[in-house]
Nucleic acid binder design. Structure first.
Length: 272
DNA sequence: ATGGTCGGACCCCGA
């Protein structure tokens, strides 16, 4: 049996638990990693997800903002919820999911700061925070290599809030000075990736120049017609483990579901 | 065409 893993910025898990149920019904992923749950741990709707078969749940939430969670139908244990930038923000959780032969897959679920509007760390503290967060990821990956990425296999996924490639945005030229696609961010994200030589399996399987987006603004009158999206969500596999992934799907249609999130799920299938 | 729309807090903020 393959292991299927979904990542989705849900933009309030309580408001959209029915959409998570729809994803479970239509795609039946073994593991669902959520970001922007906007929900304290005590209020997390665990019961609803347990009824869907996701009996293993790990949450790192806070009131009103941010928040990440992992739902699993396979045995899983929480490894760490690492605080970044001494902010008290809930932006990371790591779990080990059981695989064949006593092995396990370590999943790091991230919600990287969006960074505000002005792409200048001197005048915009939110952008400075975003860059500091990325640098802390690089440092952590580089210094605690074994803990971050055990030999059995590891995954970094989530809303990284950066569209790194020209074909990850609707207009490279028009977004070069827009937060999420500025060179300072895309270079910083590449440093994070290179720290452990993570493999972007989504772009391995759906390579440029094909346009690929996971987020469309709520502000567009007709998101599908305008199609001004960005690829802000990512799935990276540890080097030497990437061959385990034999299928990638970006669920674009979920942007058209009733009262949607502005992000759509990515689903990967692993033979592990 | 430099607007627009969300969600969750609270009387705006972050996205």
């Amino acid at each position: 049996m393959p292991l299927t893993i979904a990542t989705w910025n849900i933009n309030s898990v309580r408001l959209r638990q029915d959409l998570v149920a729809r994803l479970a019904a239509e795609k039946a992923p073994d593991v669902i990693c959520l970001q922007e749950t906007k929900c304290p741990n005590a209020s997390f709707p665990s019961k609803a997800f347990e009824k869907l078969g996701y009996t293993h749940i790990a949450v790192n939430g806070q009131k009103g903002y941010h928040g990440v969670a992992v739902l699993s139908r396979r045995p899983m244990r929480e490894v760490v919820a690492r605080p970044f930038c001494d902010m008290g923000d809930s932006r990371h959780i790591a779990v080990d999911v059981e695989a064949r032969g006593g092995r396990s897959v370590r999943i790091h679920n991230f919600y990287v700061p969006a960074g505000g509007d002005e792409p200048d760390p001197e005048v915009n503290p939110k952008f400075a925070h975003k860059l500091a967060f990325l640098d802390e990821m690089t440092d952590w990956f580089g210094t605690e290599t074994e803990a971050v990425a055990p030999a059995d296999g590891a995954i970094v996924l989530g809303d990284l809030n950066i569209a790194p490639l020209e074909d990850d945005v609707w207009s490279h030229k028009q977004l070069l000075r827009v937060v999420s696609h500025t060179p300072v961010e895309t270079e910083r994200l590449e440093q994070v990736r290179r720290a452990l030589d993570w493999v972007d399996v989504v772009r391995r399987d759906i390579p440029p120049p094909e346009k690929l987006y996971t987020w469309w603004s709520y502000r567009a009158k007709d998101w599908a017609a305008a199609d001004k999206g960005r690829r802000l969500d990512h799935v990276w596999l540890s080097n030497g483990f990437s061959d385990a992934c034999d299928r990638v799907e970006v669920l674009r249609e979920a942007r058209g579901w009733e009262r949607p999130s502005d992000h759509v799920p990515i689903i990967v299938r692993l033979d592990v």
